[in-house]
Design a protein around this nucleic acid. Structure first.
Length: 124
RNA sequence: AAAGUAGGUCGCCUUAUCGCUCCGAGUAUUCGGAGAGGAAAGUCCGGACACCAUAGAGAAUCGUAGCGGAUAACAUCCGUCCGGUGUGAACCGAGGACCAGUGCAACAGAAAGCAAGUACAGUUCGGCUGUAGUGAAAUCAGGUAAACUCUACGAGGUGCAAUGCUACGUAUAUUAGAGCUUGAGGGUACUCGCCCGAUUCUAAGGGGUAAGCAGCUAGAUGUAUAUAGUAAUAUAUAGACCAGAUAAAUGAUAAGGACGUUUUUAAAACGAACAGAAUCCGGCUUAUGACCUACUUUUAUU
RNA sequence: CGGGAUGUAGCGCAGCCCGGUAGCGCACACGGCUGGGGGCCGUGGGGUCGCAGGUUCAAAUCCUGUCAUCCCGA
C-alpha cells in the first residue's frame, strides 16, 4: 500500500479552489468541515486534497502549522479508505473549525470518520 | 538567607520505522547529503539590490542634536563630561539656541509686557531698598523650543507584489469629457529643468489571466588564533559552506539517555517557556524557560 | 511581504492641528403634560479618553513603545 503523499496530491491551484468553494458540497464532522467537488483536474492522481486553518481562530503561525501537519499526517496514513474504490477524480478541502488545539489521537479518530462519511455520500 | 543590579551561556540529545522539501548521483524508482530562531515576531530605524533622467536644481517637509570615536550606514555601539533617580550595586536623559523674531502661561494673584504696582518696615526722602502674600514661575528685558522658529548635519521617489523573460487569454466592446506636435497626459506631493508622449489620457461600467523561469541565496558570512586600540572595532592567517518553500517542506510513532520538580532514597510519576524562515544584511523594541559569574542592600552568626 | 487608518459613556460620534472646563444624539432613571399608552418637555446618573512610559507646573490633546480592529496593493 502506498503511504506517500506527493506534491501532485496537494490542492494548490487558485482556480480550482475558487471553483471548489463556489460549486462544492460540504460535510461536517466536528471539528472538521470538508468541501468536495468531482472535477477533472490535470494531475495524475485520483484526489487532490488541501488543508486549512482559520487565522481568526489561531493567531499564532506555530499553532496553524502544527494543526495542518497533524491533519496531513493522518490523511497520509488513512487515504486508502477513499482511494481504493473512488472512480471519478475529486478535489477536496478540509478545514479545522474548532477553537482548541487538538492532539494526534483526536484528529486521527475524527478524520477517519470524516473519510468514511465522504465515501458513503459519493456512492449515493 | 532574603530582596535586588549588571553581564554571559544554553535553548534537550541518540537510534529505529513511516513520510515531506531542496541539491547531487543515477535512471524510471533507488542511494547519498542538507533542512527554522534568539527573537525567524513588531516593521521602529539604517543600508545593500532593482527600476524610475547619466537622478539634476529650488522650495517645502521630515529626521537627528553635549564632546570625541567606531561603521557600508544609523535614531545603533564604544569612551567621556554634565543633569536626574535610587540607601546602594546601578540605571535614565530628543542634553544646541528664548540678547533674531512671533506666540503661550488655566486657577490664584495688584501684576505673567506694552502696562501696572497691594500691605508693612527701613530710609541718605530718590516711588529707593527689604520683607510678606499668590503661583510651577514675580519686576528680571524672567519661564517655555517633545510651541512656531533659528543654527548645524542628513534625506530624490518607489519597493522583490521591485524588475526582466516565457506561456495562456481578452475588448481597439459601450457611454461622457479632453487632446493629437500651437502637446492632453505621464515619469508618485509642489516649482523649474530634462525625458517620454497619440491604436492617447480621465471618469463610469465591463472582459481576460492570476501558470512557469530568472531575481533566490557565498555573504559589510560565521569559527579559531595573533596583532593594534581603554573600548566599539579593524587587519592578517587558517580552515568551514550553513534552509530556499510558494494553499507554502522541517512531521508522526516507539525506545533509550541526560536535565528539572514532587513523593521517597531502589525507583516511580510528571514536565520543558516564548515561538515557525519568505530578497538579504546591521541594529532597536517586544515575548520568554533554565543555569552560571560578579556586585549591592538588609537581617542573623562567627 | 509592503503601505495606511482608527481606538473617548451601553451604541454611534465630536473635542486632539493651536495642552488647563471631557461634550452631542440615541438609550437608561426620575418628574411633568395625558384617564392610560405613545409622544413631547424638564432634571439627573453613567468615562482607567485601548494600555505603559516620557516631556511639561499641568496630557484625551505633544513624543515613544505596545495591544486590538479595519482598509489598500501582482
Amino acid at each position: 500500500m502506498d503511504f506517500r503523499l506527493r506534491r501532485e496530491e496537494k490542492l494548490k491551484s487558485k482556480k480550482l479552489i475558487e471553483a471548489l468553494y463556489s460549486n462544492g458540497n460540504s460535510i461536517l464532522v466536528y471539528p472538521f468541515r470538508m468541501v468536495y467537488l468531482p472535477i477533472d483536474h490535470k494531475a495524475n492522481q485520483v484526489v487532490q486534497c488541501g488543508f486549512g486553518v482559520s487565522k481568526k481562530k489561531f493567531k499564532r503561525a506555530v499553532d496553524r502549522n502544527r494543526i495542518k501537519r497533524l491533519m496531513r499526517e493522518v490523511y497520509r496514513q488513512q487515504k486508502h479508505i477513499i482511494y481504493k474504490d473512488l472512480d471519478k477524480k475529486h478535489i477536496i478541502m478540509i478545514n479545522y473549525i474548532d477553537e482548541k488545539l487538538p492532539n494526534y489521537v483526536q484528529i486521527e479518530e475524527k478524520l477517519i470518520l470524516l473519510l468514511i462519511k465522504f465515501m458513503e455520500k459519493v456512492k449515493d
